[in-house]
Amino acid sequence: MSNEGKSKVNLESQDISQGMQNIHNSIDNFVNSAGVEAVYGKPIKSGDVTIIPTAEVFCGMGFGLGMGTFKPDADEGTENPEVEGVQEGDHPSEGAGMGGGGGGYTFSRPVALVISSPDGIRVEPILDRTKLIIATLTTVGFMMGMMGRMMRGGR
């Protein structure tokens, strides 16, 4: 490998380690976003009453990196000799490339309110009606489907 090629590979490995560092920093930030500050919100004051909202927080993420190098065989010529400036028998130069991608998902749902008043501290649960309606419809749909299959099987 030529000196130019070696320095190119060194630069690429530096890029990769830099990229990995950035990804790890992103993961740390992402995980910290689901910390106690997200679970217990900032206290909200209203007269004598202070409310602290609580929520469940879920976050997930994944990423991928890949790289490849191209080194032509010594006896391999250009595949397309008609390209301008390239003559038949020319050897294409070495090449390398890298790419990566990632994705994440964060979900938060209110669970309860911690209420501090002159009477004391109490916890009031929050009922998510939409989730309950979806759960009921899903269960009823699943039950009807399974019962239908049972009835067809019984005949």
């Binding site: 993961i27 995980v31 689901a34 910390g35 106690v36 997200a38 679970v39 217990y40 609580t54 929520a55 469940e56 927080v57 879920f58 976050c59 997930g60 993420m61 994944g62 990423f63 991928g64 990196l65 990632g102 669970v111 309860a112 911690v114 004391g120 501290i121 916890v123």
Partner: peptide
Amino acid sequence: MPQINGGMVWNRPVSVLAVN
């Protein structure tokens, strides 16, 4: 999950310790 370069975190409130 290092095999797939990913992971997840799920945090939920459990209780509060109140001191009056």
